Simulated scan of single mutants.
Amino acid sequence: MLGPIRLTNALIDHLISQPDAVIVNVSSGLAFVPLSATPTYSATKAALHSYSVSLREQLKGKVEMLNAL
């Protein structure tokens, strides 16, 4: 989870200054239907999805935010 957050924070000023900038985070269906055999994976994918949704709202009109499953 720290990787996407830190990378986004490091690049956001640059991305905002670019036309048509896009951030893509790759999540998983396990964010919504967790698998008991992989609880940490499922939890981090859910956290990434939530982060992406929040970031999309925060960056609206500045940087496009995509969350691929």
Rank of each mutant, 00 (worst) to 15 (best):
H49N: 11
G61W: 02
S50F: 07
L35R: 09
K60I: 00
L35G: 03
S17L: 00
S17W: 00
V22E: 14
I5R: 13
T40C: 04
A68F: 15
N25M: 10
L35A: 09
P19G: 03
S50N: 09
H49P: 01
L69Q: 12
A43D: 03
T38Y: 05
S36P: 01
G61V: 05
S17N: 02
S28I: 03
A21Q: 09
L2F: 14
A68R: 13
Q18E: 10
G29Q: 12
K45G: 05
K60W: 04
L69S: 13
N67I: 15
A10P: 06
H49L: 11
V53D: 07
L48Q: 06
D13C: 01
I12P: 00
K45H: 10
S17Q: 00
Y51H: 05
A10Y: 08
S36R: 08
S50M: 12
P19N: 09
L2N: 14
L55G: 00
N9P: 04
S54R: 05
A31D: 05
A68E: 14
T8A: 13
P34Y: 07
L7C: 15
A37P: 00
A31T: 06
S28P: 06
T44Q: 05
L15Y: 05
P19V: 04
M1T: 13
S17R: 04
S42E: 01
D20Q: 12
A37M: 04
V24Q: 11
L66Q: 15
A31Q: 06
A43P: 03
S42T: 01
A31K: 01
V24C: 14
S27Q: 08
L66M: 14
A10V: 08
T38Q: 06
L11H: 10
S50Y: 08
H49K: 11
A68G: 14
S28M: 08
L59D: 02
Q58M: 02
Y51N: 04
T44I: 07
S42W: 03
T40L: 11
L69W: 13
A47T: 03
L66K: 14
S36H: 07
D20G: 08
N25I: 11
T44A: 08
R6T: 11
V63M: 06
D13M: 01
L48G: 03
H49M: 06
S27V: 13
V24W: 10
Q18W: 01
F32S: 07
P39L: 00
K45D: 07
T40P: 00
L69R: 14
D20S: 10
L55W: 00
A47N: 02
P4N: 12
L15G: 01
L66S: 14
L2T: 14
H49C: 08
L66V: 15
G29I: 15
E57G: 03
E64M: 08
A10R: 11
V24G: 10
G29W: 07
A68P: 07
V63T: 02
K60R: 06
R56A: 09
G29R: 12
N25P: 09
T8I: 12
F32V: 03
